[in-house]
Every structure is written in C-alpha cells, then in structure tokens.
Design a protein around this nucleic acid. Sequence first.
DNA 1: TGTGATGTTGAATG
DNA 2: GCATTCAACATCAC
Length: 261
Amino acid sequence: MPELPEVHNFKLYFDAAATGQTISGVTVHDDHILRNLPGPAFADALTGRTIVGSLRRGKYLFAHLDNDHSLLLHFGMTGDLKLYQETADRNKFERFALHFADGNTLGFDDPRKFARILYLQDHVAYIQEIKLGPDALDLTLEDWLDAVKGRKATIKGLLLNQSILAGVGNLYADEICYRTRIHPAAHACDLSDDQLTDIHTETVAVMKYGTENAPYYKDYPEDWFWHVWREEGKAGPEGIGEVKVTKVAGRTTYFVEGWQH
DNA sequence: TGTGATGTTGAATG
DNA sequence: GCATTCAACATCAC
C-alpha cells in the first residue's frame, strides 16, 4: 500500500518506535531486500548505532544514524513495520528486524520482497544518484509545468515518474486524474496549461489530505478513491459515463469513460 | 489453478 | 542521446 501518504504513516510509526533508540542487534531472515550489503555486513553496520531521526521524500524513508550515515527503507509493494516485544508477535513475513537496547524489536515485513533496504553513507548523494524528484507535497507549480509541458508521455505516466515528483503511485494517480476529469492516457502535450495546473493542484491536495487525515488507505472517506469507482462498469458521477479498466503506463488503470477526457 | 497486486529498474524500442 | 514502454523481479491471496 505504500504511496506517499502511507509512507508518511510509516514515518510516524518509525519515529515513535525508533528515534532515540540504540540498535543492540540485527536479525536478518532473508537478505534479498538488502540491496547493497549482505546480511552479516548489514547487521554489523547497524549494531551499536543510535537512530537520531528520519526523513521522508516521496516513498523513500531515510533513517538517520548517529554516525551521519542512513538506513534507507523503501517499502516496495508490500513492506510494513511492526514493533513488538515477544518473538511470538513477529510477523510471518518479517525479512529483518532491529533489536533495540530497551527490549523492543522493530520488524520489517515484506511478503513480496520488492522492498529496497540500503545502508547509505550519504543519503543526499543517493537521492541525486537515483534522480529522485521533489516530494509531491513540495512540488511547485513552476517545476511541474517545466517538467511536463510538451511531453508526449501520458499524464498518468508522468505522475508516476518519481524523478518529476516523488510519492504518487498507481491508486493516487488514478484519483488525481478522476478529480481533474482528465483521461489518464491523455498526452501531456495535448493538455492545456489550465489542465496541467489542475493536475498540480489536485496532486498536492490529495497528498495533503492523505498525510493529514488518512493514515491508511482503507480509512479514506467512502466517497473517495477506490471505494466508489474502482469497479468496472459502474456508473460515473451524476450518472455520467461508466468506469473502465485499462492499462496506462504499464499499470492497471481505472477511469470514468465519458467523465474524463 | 490461474491471475493480478499500492513499485522500480534496466533492457529494448522508437 | 533522449523519451518511452515493458518485462522482470518474488510471493501471496483470491
């Protein structure tokens, strides 16, 4: 579930669970998601370190350590965090866990193993290296227009492009297109400045709403998002059009044909 | 049993 | 070189 608002929620959880904690040990069950260090080296690098804070940018969460290095947590499709004390409470799909000096354990769960966990000496350099764009909440209208005006790509594809803006994923991209009544497969170069401005406005609004009010995607109001119209064939708002499912930018896409143009 | 899933990447293509 | 698309990744749940 992790798009920007969900990762924001992970940050809140992580901060409460881990900030100020000293790592007394690390258990690695499966090092597939550890992308730049093998399990034992990963454990060595973290053991003895204290977590001093965190930074979220888009879907990336950087945990800062007391040696100025960082632990990157990217949750992939199915990453999750769980703080517990008893081993019996460990999640079935925990891939590694940080044990804290106070007796708690923070487990990183990931059934599908698409998460990416990296030990970074310099998180700023890493952000540059992967060309991660500004957080969607901080994206200025100017930067957005500069990045997308005249582009031939679909608007949904651009919304999902993390080097333009960081944090929008498949579900929210559909929501943003729906709200602006723009067809997700519309080419950016065919959209007016007003339409592109609308996209920017709604992107920021949706992300802001998500981070401020709805920590978990199922908790959004019932008249929002997937709750209402993520169902093929359903009549659109005001009885206009009907929901279609297609592929845009390689992702399953829901939109209301006849409502979005 | 087959299918699809909230993400990213790197190869292939235009 | 740049922009874009798409298969691949690994596993589970329906």
